[in-house]
Amino acid sequence: MSSRDRILADVRRAIGGSARSAPGPVERTYHRENLVARADVDRFAEAVAEYRATVHRVDTDADLPALVAGLCAGESVVVPDDLPDSVIGTLDVHRDTAARPLSVTELDGITAVVTFGRLGIAATGTVVLDAGPGQGRRALTLVPDHHVCVLRADQVVDTVPQAIAALDPVRPITLISGPSATSDIELDRVEGVHGPRRLDVVIVG
């Protein structure tokens, strides 16, 4: 008998041996809808800022290139191949393509990355990436020390349940809430360990 079959048999024996009633359906009485009438972009911006990420708000796409250029001034910048030029304008960037993905060592030599995000969560100040359009593969937003993430205001949802409902589980998903941090020394929070130490979140609209 394989370990698989033995474990499954043991589990069946363990739960079957007791005269117990099957649990009823899970009641989900917690908030699953908007907490406010409309997803609250202000609250999202506040929550992001509380993690000591920096929030920037612009009215239209047209404002992006100048802002992004300012944020990345003096840095070497990488973008996913499909990030539109409307975001970066004439900024000189490395492009990470499927045909020739940058090696980890090459990425390590680059200081900043500019991408889109998939969602924002207002309740927690979280940016969600799912490697979709303009987001690139996971290594891209991990190795460079500075991440500029661009979100449209209508991508902000209110609660964690709304975010989970909107995501496709098959994609590689990363939830980012502020820059990397540790509390491992005396439970004192230190920002910036292995992940990007600088996070700029740009909200358009």
């Binding site: 929550a47 993690y51 969560i121 309740a123 927690t124 100040g125 979280t126 996971r138 964690v160 995501l167 589980p169 590689p172 998903i173 990363t174 939830l175 980012i176 809430s177 502020g178 820059p179 990397s180 941090a181 992940g195």
Partner: peptide, 8 residues
């Protein structure tokens, strides 16, 4: 409110 990184 949320830990810095969650990978799925």
């Amino acid at each position: 409110r949320m830990n810095p990184y969650t990978s799925l």
